[in-house]
């Protein structure tokens, strides 16, 4: 099923799908959209990628985070050390001058983790209401008014949980089906 047009297009389209799905997620409160639809859209990009390139390639490209860890730690303070590592991992991902100092760590992001994060986020979003003295799952809003999102509140956290869960589940199913 690998055609050059699809293969090239899908690589460009994945970020578009991602951005669009997040847009749909935020938009959901006032217009059609929301976590369920957003999650589905977000995963569809990856599904096409899987169909074109296969599971292994997808996992390698998108579900693996390469981290660099400072082997030679000069521990002035732990916080500074952390900050140093975080800076290297975020800004200078490609080029590090003294390569020998760094060891590579690979972290796999499994779909099950995404599912768990989604469920966790949704379940804990209700706790905020609980701690403010109301029944569990009472929504609480900030006073801000942001263009697309509207007023952000705990419901947005809940919706994000839904998004992650649906996203993770569809990915999981796809990977299972496409393997072998």
């Amino acid at each position: 099923m690998r055609t050059i047009i699809l293969a090239t297009a899908i690589r460009l389209l994945i970020p578009v799908f991602q951005i669009f799905s997040v847009y749909i997620l935020f938009r959901g409160h006032n217009h059609p959209g929301g976590g369920f639809i957003g999650g589905l859209i977000g995963s569809i990009g990856f599904i096409f990628y899987v169909m074109t390139y296969g599971t292994k390639h997808t996992l390698k490209n998108y579900f693996r985070v390469h981290l660099k860890n400072d082997k030679v730690a000069d521990l002035h303070s732990r916080a500074r050390h952390r900050f140093h590592i975080a800076r290297v991992n975020s800004r200078y991902r490609q080029r590090v001058e003294d390569e020998w100092k760094w060891e590579h760590r690979i972290m796999r992001i499994r779909p099950v983790y995404i599912i768990a994060t989604g469920l966790f986020l949704a379940a804990t979003s209700g706790l905020i209401g609980l701690f403010s003295g109301n029944p569990y799952m009472t929504a609480i809003w900030t006073g801000l008014e942001i263009p697309i999102v509207g007023k952000p509140g705990t419901t947005l956290l809940f919706d994000a949980g839904v998004y992650l869960l649906v996203f993770g589940i569809v990915l999981k199913i796809t990977f299972v089906m496409a393997e072998e």
């Binding site: 959901g28 059609p32 959209g33 569990y136 799952m137 929504a139 509207g150 509140g153 419901t155």
Partner: peptide
């Protein structure tokens, strides 16, 4: 529910549980 999409508000607020 501070939202205009009623279905979405039901899902994530009124009947979130």
């Amino acid at each position: 529910g501070k939202g205009k999409n009623i279905v979405n508000v039901i899902l994530i607020d009124f009947r979130a549980f």
